[in-house]
């Protein structure tokens, strides 16, 4: 979606083969980089907007109690992850489509994964929670720890919790399973 990858434009310059390749490669990746950066800028805006924030918060609020600090994962995490992607990635995608013509989330997510190691910061963490289950789980565990004012004692692995019982409303999402 980002670029038509046609080196044809440069043939008339009749550069040596090596130079031509280098030139083409560089121009291509520059355009891709710029597009990528523009989209990142939009995403920054969107995730700060109230619409996204509210959705994300209510999602975390609704499900954080399902998540536990155990190594093994429960099957329900996968259902919650699916639902999370449906709701939040959808919101982001809709907002982006309004700003970027022909936006493709799938393409963009691929780029993000490829560039994972180069990137950091809050946006990337949020984007990773869509495509990377471990990042998603960590987000929930962090939220739960913060929510419950947990102090994690790493020496014993024990946790001290102050816990406010809140009814966990799961009525709206149907996990009708297999």
């Amino acid at each position: 979606m980002m670029m038509s990858n046609s080196p044809g434009d440069f043939h008339c310059l009749s550069l040596g083969e090596d130079q031509e390749e280098l030139f083409t490669e560089n121009s291509n990746s520059n355009v891709v980089d710029t597009q990528f950066d523009i989209i990142i800028g939009y995403i920054e805006d969107i995730i700060m907007e109230e619409k996204f924030q509210t959705l994300q918060n209510s999602f975390l609020e609704r499900f954080y109690k399902e998540f536990e600090e155990t190594e093994e994962n429960k099957f329900i995490y996968t259902d919650i992850h699916k639902e999370y992607v449906n709701v939040l990635e959808k919101c982001l995608e809709d907002e982006l489509s309004m700003r970027v013509p022909d936006f493709s989330m799938i393409e963009f997510t691929k780029q993000i994964i490829e560039r994972k190691s180069e990137l950091d910061g809050e946006i990337f963490e949020i984007l990773l929670t869509f495509s990377d289950f471990v990042a998603f789980k960590d987000m929930f565990l962090d939220y739960r720890a913060a929510k419950e004012g947990k102090t994690v004692d790493l020496s014993t692995g024990l946790t001290i919790t102050s816990y406010s019982e809140m009814p966990c409303d799961r009525g709206e999402i149907n996990f009708g399973q297999n």
Binding site: D18, L22, N26, I113, E114, E118
Partner: peptide
């Protein structure tokens, strides 16, 4: 292909399986 291009590609392609 220039060295910079190669370096960049190597960095980007995290071989995930």
């Amino acid at each position: 292909m220039g060295l910079l291009t190669i370096l960049k590609k190597m960095k980007q392609k995290e071989k995930e399986v």
